[in-house]
Design a protein around this nucleic acid. Structure first.
Lengths: 206, 206
DNA sequence: GTCTATATTAAGATAGAC
DNA sequence: GTCTATCTTAATATAGAC
């Protein structure tokens, strides 16, 4: 079930606080590792009050996930056929990296769900995600056929873009400790590196 | 604490079965999401018998993790200064990809631990992992200074190699569903793609 | 709407027979 | 060494007062 229809201001505020707190906890521990106690504490509400707004732990998790996939695919949807191919893909890389910077918890929520076997989003992966990826893969192949892009496997190109950009959210602790940097510092360097790498890999030989 | 010293054949066999089963469960659900009941069932032993071999759930987890980091860094240790730089790094990519193919559970165990804040391996990340990465980053910079490698940030190069190769283990469900392939099929394509991408990005301009 | 109290189940760990 | 039975705590969820 979804959240109760938020009629009053209090309802809207509390539902929001619960989802915020749940995002904190689920994204770090996954569904099974998260507890309502912890979510309640982060949200500043009592545990029974949580269950006044959502019928169950699972309902909270589903609410978070169901909105996620759509947002998550937005950067790929924005990959258009009218621009210069290499720059179009570099823009996509930058948008995806920006998602990791602004929404690291969402990235980790997604990563946790996939790691645990994607029980609640398998349909969306085989459905809208695959459909969109197939569509954009065709676009990339068309660009390659026109000689405007180096001949690369479009699917594995997308996997590599997801992996490299989401890495800065999902593995941020490791990134920060290895670099000895804090906050958003790694992202600026990452953008330079990834731009350079993908430009080299995608620019067609003259 | 570590596993009891395995004197008899039965002890060795059961300890091994427990660690095998625990790897299955911890790698999918993370420490908090895993249960002893599940591990016991997979191992084909009773729950109390598990705790005859290991003093606690945490002890099993620590045993798995403590051996992991060392193995995990082996491919990077093998990056030597005596070969041709581009091919040396491509070999590293292939070794890392092979780790994902052969040891996906270990990769996911590691990913889960990092996602959950790396509570049990933060020391190793700041210690041996960072030390090794710093060392190899210096090697890469030396190659660049000699003009034998395109000028790339060595740290983000390594992050990207970790991300792209481990992706095929950690997100394997998504990879398989998007490609509509099963088993090891994606790995052969991935090797071609990654080899091509890193060769393009790393080969110095003539 | 929110809380205290509590029912119920699951999980980590132990006791003690065999 | 292995099991059944059980203790104890924690977790999801509900009842019912306010």
């Amino acid at each position: 079930m979804a959240a109760p229809r938020t009629r009053t201001r209090i309802q809207a505020k509390n539902s929001e606080a619960i989802l915020e707190a749940a995002l904190d906890v689920f994204s770090q521990y996954g569904f099974r590792g998260a507890t309502l106690d912890q979510i309640a504490e982060v949200a500043g509400l009592s545990k029974p009050n949580l269950l006044y707004y959502f019928p169950s732990k699972e309902a909270i998790h589903v609410t978070l996930l169901s909105g996620l996939m759509d947002t998550w695919l937005d950067p790929l949807r924005a990959l258009h056929h009218d621009g210069e191919p290499v720059e179009e893909i570099l823009d996509y890389v930058r948008r995806k990296l920006e998602m990791s910077r602004l929404y690291p918890r969402e990235s980790r929520l997604f990563a946790n769900e996939i790691l645990q076997g994607a029980p609640r989003i398998l349909d969306q992966i085989e459905g809208e995600l695959k459909a969109l990826v197939d569509d954009k893969a065709a676009l990339i192949r068309a660009w390659i056929a026109e000689g405007r892009l180096a001949p690369v496997d479009p699917y594995h190109l997308m996997f590599s873009i997801w992996a490299t950009t989401q890495h800065y959210a999902d593995f941020d602790i490791q990134v920060h400790r290895v670099l000895g940097q804090e906050g958003d510092a790694p992202f600026a360097e990452a953008e330079r590196f990834l731009t350079q790498m993908y430009r080299a890999a995608l620019t067609p030989a003259r």
